[in-house]
Simulated scan of single mutants.
Amino acid sequence: MTAPAAFAAHRTVTFVVDNMTCASCPYIVKDSMAAVPGVANVTVSFEAKIATVTYDDAATNEDAIAAASMKAGYPAHPKQGSN
C-alpha cells in the first residue's frame, strides 16, 4: 500500500505593501518577491499600493514572500479577503 501523493497548488494572494513612495519602489518589491523560490508571478500596483503574487504552496508561503518584501524595506501583509 502506498501513501497518497501530495499535490501542490498554485495560490494567489494580494499583499498590501507599505513604504512605496516613488516610481522605482514597485520594481524593488516585484524583484524581492519574485526571488522567493516557488513564486510564479508578481504584479505590483504603485497606485493601489498592492502586490498580487501567484506561488506554489509546496515551495513557499505567504510569510516567506512577505519577509522578502520586508527585507527590501517594504513591509507587506495579506490584504483581508484576498484568499
Rank of each mutant, 00 (worst) to 15 (best):
A9Q: 15
A9E: 14
H10P: 05
R11Q: 11
R11I: 09
T12F: 00
T12L: 11
T12Q: 13
T12C: 14
V13K: 06
T14Q: 10
T14I: 14
T14R: 07
T14L: 07
T14P: 12
F15G: 14
V16M: 12
V16H: 14
V16F: 15
V16N: 15
V16L: 13
V17T: 13
V17S: 15
V17G: 14
V17R: 15
N19S: 11
N19T: 11
M20K: 10
T21V: 13
T21A: 15
C22D: 15
C22W: 03
A23I: 01
S24L: 03
S24G: 03
S24I: 00
C25F: 15
P26D: 12
P26W: 14
P26F: 13
Y27P: 02
Y27W: 09
Y27Q: 12
Y27N: 09
Y27A: 12
I28G: 01
I28K: 07
V29S: 07
V29E: 06
K30P: 01
K30I: 03
D31W: 00
D31I: 01
D31P: 04
S32H: 03
M33Y: 03
M33H: 08
M33Q: 10
M33I: 10
A34C: 04
A34W: 01
A34R: 12
A35V: 10
A35H: 09
A35W: 05
V36S: 14
V36L: 12
V36F: 00
V36N: 08
V36P: 13
P37C: 06
P37W: 04
P37A: 09
P37S: 12
G38A: 11
V39W: 03
V39S: 08
A40N: 06
A40V: 06
A40P: 00
A40K: 07
A40Q: 06
A40S: 11
N41T: 01
N41G: 02
N41F: 00
V42Y: 06
V42T: 15
T43Y: 06
V44Y: 06
V44M: 03
F46L: 14
E47F: 08
A48H: 07
A48P: 06
A48Q: 10
K49L: 02
K49H: 05
I50V: 11
I50M: 09
A51L: 03
T52Y: 08
T52Q: 08
V53D: 05
V53A: 06
V53W: 02
V53T: 07
V53K: 05
V53H: 02
V53P: 06
T54S: 05
T54P: 01
T54Y: 02
T54G: 03
T54H: 00
Y55F: 05
Y55W: 01
Y55R: 10
D56Q: 02
D56F: 02
D56W: 00
D56E: 04
D57I: 11
A58G: 08
A59R: 08
A59I: 05
A59M: 12
A59W: 03
A59Q: 11
T60Q: 11
T60F: 00
N61A: 05
N61I: 03
N61S: 09
N61H: 01
N61C: 09
E62W: 01
D63M: 13
D63Q: 15
D63L: 13
D63K: 14
D63H: 07
